[in-house]
Structures are given as structure tokens and as C-alpha cells.
Simulated scan of single mutants.
Amino acid sequence: MASKRLLGCITSVFWELAEAWRYKIYAEGFAWSVSLKYILSCGSMALLIEPRYQDFFSRGLEPRVNYWPVTEMGMCESIRDAVDWGNANPNEAECVGLRGQRLVQGLRMHAVYNYMLHLLTEYASLMDFRPLVLPSLDAHEACEVSLLCLADDKQHRFLEASRAELADALGVTRLPALAPARSAGARRGGLARQR
């Protein structure tokens, strides 16, 4: 418990310090990363090194409006030029950071769901695959019994222990509504009285 609390303190101190930095650099690793929205949300001018992957909001980003672009070739010079420009134009650099922050803060789940629906619909329209079921002599329906038949004793015990059952079969009934929340002290006092 203490280590979680310490980690929470370190994390909050990190983000407090991160919000104070004038520039933040976003560089992807070998795969897509979710950190871009966190970097933009701090309000500092974000320097983006030519991202290869698109996030659900990144098509709304405009270079030199919401972020400052950094080229991969000549990266050091590009970062130096961005910092030099930002230091020479601190008000404009702050505006770039704040516009990026506003863009991220304006994201709503409704917009995310609309984007995902559009994306999946577009991908589905490109698909020309039609599944075809061919009769095969080697095809067998897999069911619970067939899995248990193939299992040795140890696997059989684990499969039986991990089997899911319907709530009705277990006799589960709906729990009554919870009483209004009380303070932790009142709950502890109630537990002490019940003992």
C-alpha cells in the first residue's frame, strides 16, 4: 500500500514538473504510443518527430498551430531551430502549446466512438472476403465434452475449475440496492458494534 502511495506521489510530482517545461518532445518507439495526448495536454509547445502512426485525434493536428513538426532527417538541427524559434517568440510558442492542449481537452467519447464507427465502416467496405464453408472429413465440432476428453487428469481438473456457468444455473439472485455511502469512520464503527 505504501509503495502505491509513493508511486502516486512520484507520478503527480513528475506531471507537476512536466507541466512547467516550455517544450516537450514526442518521439515514437517501434510501435504506436498513447503518450501524445498526455504531452499535448500539458500545454507546453510539443515538438513532434514525424509520427508514423495515427491516433484517433492526430488528423486534427496542424503543424505550427497545435504542435511544432520535427523532421527525422536532421533531427537535432530541427529541434534546435524549433527551440530557437520558441525562445525568440515565447508568446507564439505558448499559443501553440495552448492550442494543442485545447484540442486534447475538447475530445469527447462521442467523437471517439464516431471515429471508430467511421473507421470500421470504411474498412468493412474494402473487404471482399466471403467465408465459404467447405465439407471436410476432418472437421469436428468442438464442445466442452470433446475438450475434456482430450485432457489428462491435471488438465481436466483445471478445465473443470475454470468452467463458466450461467448465473441462473448457479442460483444467483440480484443483490438489493446498496445503502447510501457513509464515511470510513462510520463504517468502521458499525463493524465494531456488530462484533
Rank of each mutant, 00 (worst) to 15 (best):
Q101T: 15
E122L: 10
G86N: 01
H118Q: 12
Y53W: 12
G97K: 00
R64H: 11
A93S: 12
P63Y: 01
L120M: 13
E122M: 12
T121Y: 06
R108W: 13
E77Y: 10
R64Y: 11
L103T: 02
G100P: 06
M45H: 03
T71Q: 15
R99C: 07
G86D: 00
Y53A: 01
A82C: 00
M116F: 11
W85Q: 04
H110L: 05
M45K: 05
R99I: 00
Y113R: 06
G86P: 01
R64V: 02
Y38S: 15
A111W: 05
P90L: 04
D81K: 13
S44H: 00
V104I: 11
I39A: 06
A124T: 06
R108Y: 13
V65K: 05
R108D: 08
E77R: 08
L107A: 06
G43R: 07
D84W: 05
L126P: 12
N89F: 05
Q101H: 10
Q105A: 04
L61E: 14
V83Q: 00
R99V: 00
V65G: 10
D55T: 11
S78M: 12
G74K: 05
M75F: 11
E92Y: 10
T121W: 02
A111D: 15
S125P: 08
C95N: 04
H110P: 12
N114G: 15
L98F: 02
M109W: 15
S125W: 15
S125T: 15
A111R: 05
M75P: 14
Y38N: 11
V112T: 07
N91F: 13
Q105T: 10
L126K: 10
M45T: 09
R99Q: 04
V96Q: 13
L48R: 00
V70Q: 05
M116K: 07
Y123Q: 11
C95S: 09
R52E: 12
E62F: 10
Y38Q: 15
S78N: 07
M116G: 06
L120T: 15
R102W: 08
C76M: 07
D81S: 13
W68T: 00
R64C: 06
E92K: 09
V65D: 04
S78T: 05
Y115Q: 05
C95I: 05
F57R: 04
N66V: 04
P90D: 08
S41V: 00
S44K: 03
D81I: 09
E122R: 11
R108A: 09
S125M: 15
R59V: 03
L40G: 02
R80I: 12
N66C: 14
M45Y: 01
G43T: 07
W85R: 04
E122N: 10
D55V: 00
N89A: 01
V65N: 02
S41H: 03
V104T: 08
Y38G: 12
P90Q: 02
M116E: 13
Y53M: 13
S41W: 03
A124F: 06
T71H: 14
S58G: 03
A46N: 08
A82H: 01
R52V: 08
Y53S: 01
R108I: 04
N89W: 06
G100N: 10
R108E: 11
R102D: 10
E72L: 07
Y115E: 02
R108N: 04
G100F: 07
L107M: 06
R102F: 10
G43E: 08
A111N: 12
G86A: 01
E72W: 14
Q101Y: 13
L61Y: 09
M75K: 14
L48Y: 00
R59N: 15
E77A: 14
